[in-house]
């Protein structure tokens, strides 16, 4: 693969509301290997819509998403989403314990060849500032920060190529936030030729600290910050 070719690319993406108002318009974006894109913008600017569009979760009203330079066929979408994992802003955990949540992806066809590794999971949870005892607790008992950590670890353990993270540290204290940033930075650096992150954040300092590139989305339009 050419070093220049982006892993993930959005070309003129657009999304309309039910009354044909553009919520996202002409959004173009390239995510190259080893990149950490920080995406900023006011509330309602379309940041979540953009991440959802990149993950192919919603039908687009305009534009397209390319994976390694090619359009994604309908039947390849699950495999694509196993490589480009979107982590929702509001952690969506399944009923049951944290362990059951972390094991859940391996029951899907897309990850059937792989096995759940509890040692790795405990290590990842620790780097989010969470103890291993969290594994046996039901998700109903979790705090916001604990849920967010489990949802993040559930994605990271799959070692996708791109992580699309929607405010992944919004419920964490500053120490845990730094620790998660470091975990994500290390995760990309472990395989820089095939990994990247797009992270939505409201915190300008976090964007500067974490992002190799900072993008700003305003009124549905994307611009690169100096």
């Amino acid at each position: 693969m050419s070093a220049d070719r982006p892993l993930l690319e959005a070309i003129d993406l657009g999304r309309q509301s039910e009354n044909s108002h553009w919520l996202l318009r002409n959004a173009s974006l390239r995510v190259r290997a080893a990149e950490r894109l920080a995406l900023m913008g006011p509330t309602g600017a379309g940041k979540t819509l953009l991440l959802r569009a990149l993950a192919q979760l919603d039908p687009s009203d305009a534009g397209c998403v390319l994976w390694r330079g090619e359009e994604i066929a309908a039947q390849d979408i699950p495999r694509f989403r196993a490589s480009v994992v979107y982590v929702q802003q509001r952690p969506a955990l399944l009923p049951g314990t944290s362990r059951e949540n972390l094991q859940a992806p391996f029951r899907l066809h897309a990850h059937a060849q792989r096995e759940y590794d509890e040692g790795r999971v405990i290590e990842l949870l620790a780097r989010c500032g969470q103890p291993s005892t969290l594994l046996d607790r039901t998700t109903m008992q979790h705090s916001g920060g604990q849920s967010q950590s489990v949802a993040l670890v559930r994605a990271v353990q799959l070692d996708p190529h791109v992580l699309l993270l929607d405010e992944p540290t919004s419920s964490l204290d500053s120490q845990a936030t730094r620790s998660v940033e470091e975990l994500l930075r290390d995760w990309v650096e472990l395989e820089p030729a095939s990994r990247a992150i797009v992270m939505v954040t409201h915190d300008a300092r976090q964007a500067q600290r974490f992002g190799t590139t900072v993008l700003r989305l305003e009124n549905g339009q994307l611009t690169r910050e100096a």
């Binding site: 699950p78 969506a92 859940a104 899907l108 066809h109 897309a110 799959l158």
Partner: peptide, 16 residues
């Protein structure tokens, strides 16, 4: 809805 979408984001097929 969140749980259905969480499964989709992890690579689930629509059926799964």
């Amino acid at each position: 809805r969140d749980q259905v979408e969480a499964l989709l984001t992890l690579g689930a097929t629509r059926w799964e």
